[in-house]
């Protein structure tokens, strides 16, 4: 099941690389959040406990409901144009994503021989980290940068489940809270940037230089 979810996660990354609509990014974030929630709930299906549901429930609220809604609100409030402004062609971007995915999967397969890791979730998570960075590098809009950052964070989360991370629940909740506040602050900053600097993309940020 973990493998199926991870592959679905990878498919969402492909969609992310070809779409040119801002809204689609929000949908992808929602979908990835949902996948991660299912991934967390799944091990507890047979021995259900309320306590074990706290983390998946928080994850669901933060990543599927609150953050996507907040990003949608910013898009509507600021009337951000509906298309992302890429700096490279979508096809080139897709090739780049496929290439990195292949490299990460092959490398993970080699690594899995020397360590006890689940190859598919491990590689999917790491690919998402790389794709998140690509999104930040090759897109102009700041709101898409935030989405890229969230894809990267989702990748780390998936990756964390693959390495059987033993982070206690309190810490996991803390990380979720931190991510939420980061996105919240970034949202406020984008609002201010659009009103002060009259723009929503990186080209307006060029004042600080040596």
């Amino acid at each position: 099941m973990q493998n199926v979810l991870s592959i679905l996660f990878c498919l969402s990354l492909f969609y992310l690389s070809v779409t040119s609509r801002v809204k689609a990014y929000v949908t992808i974030l929602r979908f990835q959040g949902l996948l991660l929630t299912v991934l967390l709930v799944f091990p507890f299906i047979h021995h259900f406990s309320i306590f074990a549901l706290i983390l998946p429930a928080t994850l669901f609220i933060v990543k599927v409901i609150v953050i996507p809604r907040y990003i949608n609100k910013i898009i509507l409030d600021l009337d951000i144009k509906r298309v992302i402004e890429p700096t490279i062609q979508p096809f080139t971007f897709l090739l780049l994503v496929i290439f990195s995915m292949v490299v990460v999967f092959v490398a993970s397969n080699i690594l899995s021989k020397s360590a006890d890791i689940e190859t598919i979730p491990f590689a999917s998570g790491f690919t998402a980290i790389v794709v998140g960075i690509f999104v930040i590098i090759f897109r102009k809009k700041l709101i898409i940068h935030v989405a890229g950052f969230l894809v990267l964070e989702n990748g780390i989360f998936l990756f964390g489940t693959a390495v059987a991370s033993e982070l206690p629940m309190m810490i996991e909740l803390g990380t979720l809270l931190d991510i939420f506040v980061v996105v919240f602050l970034m949202g406020i900053a984008i609002n201010k940037i659009s009103s002060t600097l009259a723009g929503f993309d990186v080209t307006v940020l060029g004042r600080l230089k040596d």
Partner: peptide, 11 residues
Amino acid sequence: EEALEAMWKYL
């Protein structure tokens, strides 16, 4: 403007 840019980049 400068402080805003610095904050965004730092964050």
